[in-house]
Design a protein around this nucleic acid. Structure first.
Length: 449
RNA sequence: GGUCCGGUGGCAGAGUGGUGAUGUAGCGGACUGCAAAUCCGCGUAUGUGGGUUCGAUUCCCGCCCGGACCUCCA
């Protein structure tokens, strides 16, 4: 297989990916709402999309990757109000953390990172279009999208409008014509952030922000839209409704790529369940590359149950790869890595790609330099092996603090005082977190525990 | 309640209508003063009951179990 197959949520089938413009593939990923630290679930989403972008860049001359920042949101407003600061002051830290955390996972930055606050004109224009062509209406200072006006509404997420109305579990505001109608614009009281609009001072709803930003930077039609599968409804259903109704005849995104949820103890991570991990917390426990690797050890359309054991296994596998690379320092030539390439082309089958990585590592460990070259080439495709083996195994070790102990141990071994050499080995491990391994001929090697 | 998805060895996790990848853990061996790493070898799995088929883990139906979504959610 030489062509990319992707599962498309829209058609519920794996399809051959055909770009609208092979000279410029255009992709959009729903980015963070910046009111707090990014969590592991966000990270899975971004890492998976990162692998897709890397693959697309191998296949096409140009890829435009847009990932937005949602900086207009009621949770942001709540924090701003609670702390008595502006929304810029609330979002500044989370935006910086997000960039730091995603960088620590070696994800590529998007080409364009639009912010909702910079797209009010586009948001307002889309709402005006929707009102003009009968898909939206104004009511009590709000502007609402009329789901009844859009025969296609609900098709994407596979639900009927009746079902949505019957299933509505929230109190339905009296000004809504249908229970399923959703907010495009809502009024802001003087104490809340707001922007002037034809409907008074207010702020946009969440869904319209993504419609506006993707339109501005990728156009009415683009290739790929990604996100977590919990966004299928209502967020993506609503984006489609807004964009397709505002731009009649448009198709919005052709292919929808959704990753399944990351679970902790078998359940979706959430603050209320107390099984919530921020990326920052996890990065304290393990190298970013190990977290990245952990997130690609299961297929993106399967749930992934996060655990400490998983982190350990991810590290152990990377140890193996770095050992293989370490044996062939000169093997930097790019070589064909069909096993890995084919696995990724088949709907981003990262577990199969990793299995292929192990095959290459087997070769490299058996002394085959071409195997090491393949391993490195494949790793690059997956965003792995960003360090040298030296950094991976020994980065952060305080050489000065342990060189005396190591010298003593060398002497003890020469004297065949194994009780002493074992004692020192134990001290190195327990007090310095350093494993020392003996090699033939009196040589040794150290690495982090 | 409605819609959807999934149940593969101790654990993690792919694929497939025809004797089930890969990793990790475990066990045995080689190597080592002992370890570690590496190498060789071993073992254990397709939730359950039917159906279709020459043959099903794979397709269909029931059941059991788990998860997601049903307007905060990656």
């Amino acid at each position: 297989m030489t062509q990319l197959m992707l599962y498309n949520t829209r058609t519920r089938a794996k399809e051959l990916f055909v770009p609208l413009d092979a000279e410029n593939v255009r992709a959009y990923l729903c980015g963070p709402t910046v009111y707090d630290r990014a969590h592991l679930g966000n990270a899975r989403n971004v890492v998976i999309f990162d692998i897709l972008i890397r693959l697309l860049r191998r296949l096409y001359p140009r890829v435009t990757y847009v990932r937005n920042i949602t900086d207009i949101d009621d949770r942001i407003n709540e924090r701003a109000a609670a702390r008595g600061v502006t929304i810029e002051e609330v979002t500044e830290g989370p935006v910086r953390w997000y960039h730091e955390d995603m960088g620590a996972l070696y994800t590529l930055p998007p080409d364009i990172e639009p912010r909702a606050t910079e797209h009010l004109p586009e948001i307002i224009e889309i709402i005006e279009r929707l009102i003009a062509n009968g898909h939206a209406y104004e009511a009590e200072g709000h502007v609402l999208f009329s789901v009844a006006s859009d025969p296609a509404y609900g098709k994407f997420s596979g639900r009927s409008t009746d079902e949505l109305i019957a299933g509505a579990r929230v109190d339905v505001a009296a000004y809504k014509r249908d229970a399923g109608d959703f907010v495009l614009w809502k009024p802001s009281s003087p104490d809340l952030p707001g922007w002037d609009s034809p409907w008074g001072r207010g702020r946009p709803g969440w869904h319209i922000e993504c419609s506006a930003m993707s339109w501005k930077h990728l156009g009415e039609n683009f290739d790929i839209h990604g996100g977590g599968d919990d966004l299928i409804f209502p967020h993506h259903e609503n984006e489609i409704a807004q964009s397709c109704c505002a731009f009649p005849g448009s198709n919005f995104a052709n292919v929808w790529v959704h990753n399944r949820m990351l679970l902790v103890n078998g359940e979706k991570m959430s603050k209320s369940l107390g099984n919530f991990f921020t990326l920052n917390e996890v990065l304290d426990k393990a190298p970013g590359e190990a977290i990245r690797f952990l997130l690609m050890r299961s297929h993106y359309r399967s749930t992934l149950d996060f655990s400490e054991a998983g982190i350990k296994e991810a590290r152990a596998e990377l140890d193996r790869f770095y050992r293989a690379i370490q044996q062939h320092p000169g093997a930097d030539r790019e070589v064909a890595v069909m096993l890995v390439f084919d696995a990724l082309l088949d709907d981003l089958n990262t577990p199969a790609a990793i299995a292929a990585l192990h095959k290459y590592a087997d070769l490299a460990l058996a002394g085959n330099a071409a195997g090491a070259a393949a391993l490195k080439t494949a790793g690059k495709l997956l965003g792995l092996f960003n360090m040298t083996p030296e950094e991976w195994f020994r980065g952060g070790i305080d050489q000065g603090a342990i060189e005396g102990l190591i010298a003593q141990r060398v002497l003890a071994r020469i004297a065949k005082d194994f009780a002493e050499s074992d004692r020192i080995r134990d001290v190195l491990l327990k007090e310095h977190g350093v494993i020392i391994e003996d090699k033939p001929g009196g040589a040794y090697e150290i690495r982090k525990a």
